[in-house]
Amino acid sequence: MVVLEGVSAQLGGREVLREVDLVLPTGVTALVGRNGAGKTTLMRVLTGALKPTAGVVRVNGHDIHGMSAAMRAHRQGLGWQPQEPRLPPRMRVSRFLEYAAWLKRLSPSEGQGAVDTALAAVDLSDLRDRRLGVLSGGQRRRAALAAAIVGDPTLLLLDEPTLGLDPIQRSHFLGVVRKLAPDRSIVLATHLMEDVELASDRWVVIDGGRIVAARDVDRSSPAALSSTADDVREALGVDSRSGL
């Protein structure tokens, strides 16, 4: 369980997160907001790359920014797919995931198993010997996702993971994310309603660095699901013609 209590953060002297209180349970939490709303900053706080100026991030009860041991433990269970991941083009998929496994402190034998599992989870087993540079945009995203889930992290952070994907690739990618959801907390930062509707168990709207709304996604009926998009737009203060 990840809990943020009154978290504020600054970038370049400007406050971009303001007293964020948030609980991230198991399942997919869509983090929705306009560009510059603070989604990526919140992600960076969750990875530990950015230290909050106020507040606490607790993972399993430990303040991850308070002690280096807690941070190491947090990062052991963390998977992160950055926005627009750039991957070394000459590396083969499996070699890149081996590297990711080493970064997760997995032993060679554990790492090999973790690589196979991650490749299978993102449907890239057949492409394991391809160079990253020859993969399509969707395949590259899934390779980055595979690197994020190597070692079976309990917290998976996906920053705008479907950006630039065509509808089929996006649907495929979100299907993979759904399959991963039951065993971990997944934060899916996005500004696409489709990501919220297809992949999320709940949504959180962030605007101006503050959480302005949060709700579970109702999948009990198509009508209830379709109302999710309207609820998010309403929370964002935009109408349906805005493109969100």
């Binding site: 960076r44 990875t47 530990g48 790359a49 190491r72 433990a73 990062r75 052991q76 963390l78 992160w80 950055p82 991941p85 750039r86 991957l87 070394p88 970064l103 997760k104 402190r105």
Partner: peptide, 9 residues
């Protein structure tokens, strides 16, 4: 990939 790598344990 520097920031991604920096979040490694």
């Amino acid at each position: 990939m520097a920031e991604w790598v920096s979040t490694s344990p």
